[in-house]
Simulated assay, not measured.
Amino acid sequence: MPKTPLRAAAAIGGTADDVEAAFYEALQRGDIDALMACWADEDEVFCVHPGGPRLVGAVAIRAAFEQMFGNGAIHAMPARVRKIDSLASAVHNVLERIEVLTAEGPRHAFVLATNVYHKTAQGWRMVAHHASPGTAREPDDANDPPQVLH
């Protein structure tokens, strides 16, 4: 069996970025086991889907994603990532571009999400995913300061 990005990241001491890539790949494949492997094994992990309640714990999070995957994979592509990283935690704010297939053809929606990662004994894992209700148009980031390398 080939290694998934998360297994490879865990085996070589990957980063929060590696876990985030594995999370979005699992969404796009509708792979619940790969998706749940991204989450920390902690009782207080939480997830909030757009317009939904706060889901606490792996059992509740898994059930919600299984229900969503019942309608097929989730075609979400992260973009415009803003990061705050430290030695043991990372916070990523992403613009998720969601593709929805309709009778008129593919449509896109945009969701702002915040993903929080902690460095655990098993390596980097997600501890929180919070997504806000989406928009039909891509948000304007005109007020965002330009990214500068130091």
Results as ranks from 00 to 15, higher is better:
A136T: 11
R54F: 07
A63C: 13
R80T: 00
E104F: 09
F23I: 09
G105M: 13
F65E: 02
Q28H: 02
R54E: 02
T120W: 03
Q67C: 14
P146Y: 04
H92M: 11
A64L: 05
A21N: 14
A34I: 02
Y24L: 07
L35E: 07
D140A: 13
L95V: 04
I12M: 08
I12A: 11
A128R: 04
V116W: 00
V19H: 01
M36L: 08
V45A: 12
D17C: 05
G70M: 15
N71W: 10
S86Y: 08
H130E: 04
H49W: 05
F110G: 02
E42V: 05
G70L: 14
Y117T: 01
Q67M: 15
M68H: 13
Y24E: 12
N93T: 06
P53W: 05
A16C: 14
A121M: 08
G52M: 00
S86D: 09
D140R: 03
K83R: 13
T4C: 14
F69D: 07
I74V: 14
A60Q: 13
T120Y: 07
L112R: 05
M1R: 08
V111R: 02
K119C: 10
V59K: 12
E99T: 12
V111H: 08
R137A: 14
I12R: 05
A34M: 07
T114N: 10
A40R: 02
C47I: 03
T120N: 05
A142H: 05
A128C: 05
A16E: 08
E44G: 07
L95W: 06
G123C: 04
H108S: 14
D41H: 13
P145V: 03
A8S: 11
L101V: 12
V94H: 00
P106M: 12
T102V: 15
D141Q: 06
F69C: 01
M126K: 15
H130L: 03
R7E: 09
L95E: 04
A131K: 03
K83S: 09
L149D: 13
H129G: 05
D141A: 03
A11T: 04
A11P: 00
T120E: 06
E42K: 12
T135G: 10
A63E: 15
A109E: 12
A73Y: 10
N115I: 06
T4N: 03
D18K: 06
L112I: 10
V81P: 01
A63V: 10
A79K: 12
R54V: 09
M1H: 02
L87P: 04
S86F: 09
V19L: 08
Q28W: 02
F65K: 00
A121W: 07
E25M: 11
P146M: 03
E20W: 07
A136E: 10
V116I: 06
A113I: 07
G72H: 12
V100T: 13
G30L: 02
G123P: 08
H75V: 07
A10P: 00
V19G: 07
P5L: 04
A79Q: 09
G14T: 10
V48F: 02
L95S: 02
L95Y: 04
I98H: 02
E104C: 14
P78L: 06
F23P: 01
F69E: 04
